[in-house]
Amino acid sequence: MKTKEDFPSINERKPEGLSPEGTPFRVLIVDDSMFVAKQIAQILGSEGYDVVGQAADGLQGLERYKELYPNVDLVTMDITMPNMDGITALQKIIEFDKNAKVIMISALGKQDLVKQALLTGAKNYIVKPLDRKKVLERISQVLKK
């Protein structure tokens, strides 16, 4: 969906996807839904984030994280996925890197799982349907911490 934010405004502001040093934040997207993954990639890409990897299930996500480490700043993690669910993948990523910044993507109706994820070490969560504002807000909050 195109919004006016896709176009540069007159008052230049620094894109949210850039770190204080001016390099883009590097994001790994773990989601079994192609549509959701594409949606997140589009939103993040438009703000200057660098999507460095995508994975379609928890197991792949864990492997990609290990490959990319330490050149990855953030993971978006779906909860319900085949092979390995998002909570387990989160747990294993935290075991591997206790400072990992993982943000959960959840459909409504999974409150219990979201709570469990937050207890396990997820930094925040976003409930679908995703909208641009919500996604960018939550992600920049996590990266500022």
Binding site: S33, F35, A107, L108, G109, K110, Q111, K128
Partner: peptide, 12 residues
Amino acid sequence: ELANMITAQAVT
């Protein structure tokens, strides 16, 4: 995903 979102919201 549309199906998922609708059902999930109903379940909530």
